[in-house]
Design a protein around this nucleic acid. Structure first.
Lengths: 248, 248
DNA sequence: CCCGAGGTTTGATTTGTATCAATGCCAGAG
DNA sequence: CTCTGGCATTGATACAAATCAAACCTCGGG
């Protein structure tokens, strides 16, 4: 049975209710984190005309592997899982996209992965072809996209080491520490609670483990007083333990 | 004992002996495969002035993880392994670079991986800062680099699926098929013999396995009449078997 | 307040791959 | 021709994680 059968096609919403039209980008709280930080005020207002705010509800798909890439997206809130599936149902999650992350860096007309909303998600949407034309005329934007791509590539290489060479315990320690860093970056300040919006199955598919091994390993860490489990997340009790067992 | 202790620093050689200075790029046999295909005749001669042909002998390092990235490279012949190492000696090979592949796409001043010559290697070398200045002024070159980067990213995602979700048999089938495709691309025509210049340990470190499992799996395939083992490589006997077991 | 569904935890058992330990097989040096 | 060192192969055994199988929350709906 396909575990993804509950993923429904996305439903596009009307434009953002919280900003007057014409102010979205200037007041965007993820601009500093995103592609758009490379864009000056004048370009920003032009870019804004190309963009549309979209909302995806929990468990809906932003797009699927086999879809044509009509749009590209800048995630502004929520968490998205990036999934590659095998014909027999095995899944690998190659990453989680959060506020500031860009989907569609390659500007290819075909996606090579699915993007599914783990939580409710807001994203700034651009028509792919239009965005490509724009970036073709703005070398500094292209360069910023290239920097994003090579950064992603470096993260992908880290993840290959994790998948190929770490133990279950090391995988979880690395994952939790990385998640802490990403929330800190998004929130703009140190956080205590590490929110885990994704389910155990998603964590398993990200780390190349089974759900049972993820559950056992986290609960073992709890029993060993390395962390406490709280609603919707965990909290480090022994941060040094995670630093010592994680990859970089 | 560190398995890499035999990797010695590279020895730089004088410029290419086979071409008169001023003709390297025009007659370059990997141009069509490389970054340089995006460069027109005039730019090519300019680029050529920036470049120097280098030779690295088998087992030497082009650069190491911890080195500062002074140069970037365009591989013109031979095979390079890209390695990430853990402090305790565990290794993950994130890829093999062959003719046409570019090392230094990120243009960062620090490498995040080592590059080691598996065979004798020739590469076209550029000063990183100079190359960056050049690409900053040539949007189509930057775009080509970006395309290379996002293609790499897609390959990296494939490899994550392999590492996280495939069995040893599937990993080997995928690896051999992928290698066949890459040799075909480099040679410019279909090939029968799939050369395996890298040792079993390198294959293991690429696939997230041990050397024993690689050896057992290949020899099992041989016993099952899926392939024949020949000096320096293998030959498919049952190509359909590999197609059926490989990832895409 | 109870029920049911979806997700999580826990336990028992199996298994694929790692580990440990020889042995085999060249190719190059002497 | 024989020795030697560096892989590669093969076999026996161990073990980490997968698989199979319940039981257990918890939260929203009736």
């Amino acid at each position: 049975m396909d575990r993804n059968s509950d993923i429904v096609p996305f439903h596009e919403t009307a434009s953002c209710a919280h900003h007057a039209k014409g102010d979205e980008c200037r007041f965007c709280n993820v601009r500093r984190l995103s592609i758009c930080a490379a864009v000056d005020a004048e370009e920003l207002s032009f870019l804004e005309d190309l963009s549309g705010d979209t909302v995806f509800e929990e468990k809906s798909a932003l797009f699927r592997e086999e879809d044509e890439a009509i749009s590209v997206y800048n995630v502004t809130s929520g968490v998205v899982r990036l999934v590659r599936s095998l014909p027999d149902g095995r899944r690998q999650i190659t990453g989680f996209a959060m506020a500031g992350d860009f989907l569609g860096l390659s500007l290819n007309t075909s996606w090579s992965f699915s993007a599914e909303a783990v939580t409710d998600v807001r994203a700034c949407r651009f028509k792919r072809s239009t965005f490509e034309d724009f970036s073709d005329r703005k070398p500094h934007l292209m360069k910023r996209m290239h920097e994003f791509a090579t950064h992603e590539l470096s993260l992908a290489q880290d993840h290959m080491v994790l998948l190929g060479r770490l133990t279950a315990e090391e995988k979880l320690a690395t994952f939790l520490l990385e998640l802490k860093r990403r929330w800190t970056r998004v929130e703009g300040h140190e956080i205590g609670l590490i929110k885990l919006p994704m389910g155990r199955q998603d964590i398993a598919d990200y780390l190349g483990l089974t759900i049972e091994t993820v559950s056992r390993t986290i609960n073992q860490m709890h029993r060993d007083r390395r962390l406490v489990i709280v609603p919707d997340g965990i909290r480090f009790v022994d941060p040094a333990y995670f630093e010592a067992h994680a990859l970089r």
